[in-house]
């Protein structure tokens, strides 16, 4: 069991072979899927019918994936992503409905609520040392109830009527609707750049920022992190707060996409939140994340959804194929690891 230290240090620094880069595999898979669906149904490349809504969906679910990724970096889980999103959307809706807050204020309020909920989970986890799965699961239960109670109390049903000015534009418009003279923007929904900012922000955080790196180090080895002077508990709280914040953003994007702040926001977030990062190569052990992989993982799942949808598969039946792709990708990844290890290359 206790394997003594291995020393491949004398070996020449082997470069990672191209096939061993997991991200490239995902890109190839993505392209292959798009090619496949386009051959079967040329309508797959129809801008209005497929591409624009698909971009909007990818935008929403990429942020959902990032929300989970934020705590996977620690080796933790957030079972309450969906409900944090719902609470955040509720806060935005309430701010608009009661205080007539403009779009940005409503958004900021929603994000703050998401971040606070995340921080609360992180605080409980870091103070008590209880498994993050249990804490966030319990929080999820509590919030499921709270969300519907709040909607029942403050609205006449399950949704707020009306949206802040500008929010419906987020849903309906693409950049092609905005022209300067004869030059119009590309057919990209307005939601996309918001998600892109989140992707870049999280990427920047984990790649270059001190806080992000210290979160990763905490995930890699909490004991060593503490003994290296990293404020471990505070980093745990921060990572969970980030997760809540991103869940809130995803809730906002979905509300924009749906056209209302409703109690159902976030109901379907849990599964995709794990699917995307895991498909993208982020493990549950903590210490390493792949932001780009998460985006690719989201794109692949959404392409499969849309493609099979066009092929007139039933919505629920699609899950079968998503699951198979996930299983295949994971097994291949495992195989890749084994092969790479045999060659003495750190995979």
């Amino acid at each position: 069991m206790k394997q003594e230290e291995t020393t491949p240090e004398q070996r020449p620094p082997a470069r990672l072979p191209l096939w061993a880069n997991p991200r490239i595999g995902l890109v190839v898979l993505l392209i292959a899927l798009i090619a496949l669906f386009t051959t079967l149904r040329p309508a797959f490349l129809n801008t209005q019918l497929t591409l624009v809504p698909m971009q909007a969906d990818i935008s929403v679910y990429a942020v959902v994936g990032l929300s989970q990724l934020a705590v996977l970096s620690l080796g933790h889980m957030n079972m309450a992503v969906g409900r944090m999103a719902a609470m955040s959307a509720f806060a935005s809706g309430l701010l608009h409905d009661r205080l007539d807050a403009p779009l940005l204020v409503a958004l900021a309020g929603g994000l703050a609520v998401g971040a606070l909920l995340g921080a609360l989970a992180g605080l409980v986890i870091s103070r008590t040392g209880v498994n993050s799965f249990v804490v966030t699961l319990a929080l999820d239960f509590a919030l499921i109830g709270l969300v519907s109670l709040l909607y029942a109390t403050f609205t006449d049903g399950v949704a707020f009527n009306g949206l802040p000015a500008g929010m419906s534009a987020l849903r309906t418009d693409t950049f092609a609707d905005y022209c300067a003279g004869d030059v119009c923007g590309p057919e990209i929904p307005l939601l996309a750049p918001i998600a892109l900012i989140a992707v870049l922000g999280v990427g920047l955080l984990f790649r270059w920022s001190r806080v992000g790196r210290e979160v990763l180090m905490t995930g890699a080895n909490a004991k060593a992190a503490e003994l290296s002077g990293i404020p471990v508990r505070w980093r745990v709280v921060q990572a969970h707060a980030l997760s809540g914040l991103l869940a809130g953003l995803a809730g906002f994007l979905l509300s924009a996409n749906n056209g209302s702040f409703s109690a159902g926001v976030g109901d379907g977030f849990l599964l995709p939140s794990f699917l995307a990062p895991v498909l993208g190569g982020t493990l549950l052990v903590g210490g390493a994340v792949s932001v780009l992989g998460t985006v690719l993982g989201t794109a692949i799942t959404q392409v499969i959804y849309k493609g099979l949808n066009l092929l007139q598969f039933q919505v629920d039946e699609l899950k079968l194929y998503i699951g198979l792709v996930l299983l295949a990708a994971l097994s291949l990844d495992r195989l890749r690891h084994v092969l790479a290890e045999r060659r003495g290359v750190p995979a």
């Binding site: 920047l204 270059w208 920022s209 001190r210 806080v211 790196r213 210290e214 990763l216 180090m217 890699a220 080895n221 004991k223 060593a224 992190a225 003994l227 290296s228 002077g229 990293i230 210490g287 390493a288």
Partner: peptide, 29 residues
């Protein structure tokens, strides 16, 4: 192995972890 090192992290990170604070510009390293 348990307390001194981050075994699954590159040497750079292992050595750099204590100096990030000093190197960081606007929070970025």
């Amino acid at each position: 192995k348990g307390e001194g090192l981050f075994l699954e992290q590159p040497i750079t990170r292992n050595v750099g972890v204590t100096v990030w604070r000093r190197l960081a510009r606007f929070g970025l390293i």
